[in-house]
Write a protein that binds this DNA or RNA. Structure first.
Length: 289
DNA sequence: CGGGACTCCTGAGGGC
DNA sequence: TGCCCTCAGGAGTCCC
């Protein structure tokens, strides 16, 4: 369940390892991810150098020296591993060690570089995807063209919020999950943001006052930043491209905390759970109004 | 246009 | 130990 912070952490760890490497070969073990990978498409990457990696929402965009791009989404369980032969000898690589050896069977795509190091795309549930597109049209791609603002940018602010919800009728949780409103939040961070904002997931956006909107914006930015600084959240499946895990899950106040005492010291309630739009919502019925 | 249901997938975990 | 069931869920698609 990588959301914005996890994808940002993956991006940073990839940047430090694969920039300026030339792709020598692409090996497809399993083409049937969310979208079928065509060998003809992906072979357009061969012979080119990786010049840049961008993140937009939960997507990663790999830019290549031949003006092609690779768009990826990690879905629920997608991971990138970077395997450097030299590091392996020094045993500093976390990949292919005893702990996650069984994961090899979910290595679906291998990018082999000219220096013989490898970038591996591994995805247990195959909800993720890899698509090839031209650099000059990538942001008009169906996945990217309708995305809302990046939550950490200043364009995501109170004016934007008020304007977007004008004449709309929705529950606040549905709004925050809507990628057209703000890009990159998923179920976990929305649960956490609403807890800190003291707003119940089912609240109608029509009833929100200015102060509450400001609070929501504030905590979105604050929680995402903190999660990035902690290396993201590692629940079962998330690791960065070095195989390391994040620790923000230790800061969760409501997500997955059904039945536990509310973390606000002056509150005696317990965390409840309800299903909204087919997804689990955790909240404190005393603190969140 | 909005909202709800359904879909893809596989491992973890619970019940017995 | 093993079988069966449920759950996890991003986002595209379809239908009303």
């Amino acid at each position: 369940m990588p959301e914005l912070p996890e994808v940002e952490v993956v991006k940073k760890s990839l940047e430090s390892s694969i920039y300026n490497l030339i792709i020598k070969e692409v090996r497809i073990n399993e083409p049937n991810l969310r979208y079928k990978i065509k060998k003809r498409e992906i072979s357009k990457l061969i012979g080119s150098k990786i010049t840049k990696i961008e993140r937009r929402s939960k997507y990663l965009i790999f830019k290549l020296s031949n003006k092609m791009t690779m768009l990826t989404h990690l879905g629920m369980t997608g991971k990138f591993f970077y395997e450097d032969k030299k590091n392996n000898k020094k045993k500093t690589s976390f990949y292919y060690n005893l702990n996650n050896h069984k994961d090899i069977k979910h290595d679906h795509v291998l990018f082999i570089f000219k220096n013989n190091s490898k970038l591996i795309y591994n995805d247990v549930r195959k909800f993720g995807f890899i698509k090839i597109d031209k650099e000059n049209t990538i942001y008009r791609n169906i996945h990217l063209k309708n995305l809302g603002p990046e939550p950490l940018k200043s364009s995501f602010n109170l004016d934007y919020f008020r304007n977007f919800i004008k004449n709309k009728k929705k529950k606040i949780k549905d709004l925050l999950m809507d990628q057209k409103f703000v890009a990159g939040l998923g179920n976990i961070y929305v649960n956490e943001v609403l807890f800190f904002s003291k707003i119940r997931p089912t609240r109608s956006i029509r009833t929100l006052n200015k102060k509450e909107m400001k609070r929501i914006i504030f905590f979105i930015k604050k929680i995402l930043k903190k999660a990035i600084s902690k290396g993201g959240s590692s629940i079962k499946n998330f690791e960065n491209s070095g195989g390391k895990t994040g620790s923000f899950q230790d800061n969760f106040k409501v997500y997955g905390k059904l039945g536990q005492k509310c973390s606000n010291s002056d509150c005696k309630s317990y965390i409840k759970k309800m299903i909204l739009a087919q997804r689990a919502s955790f909240y404190c019925s005393n603190c969140q109004k």
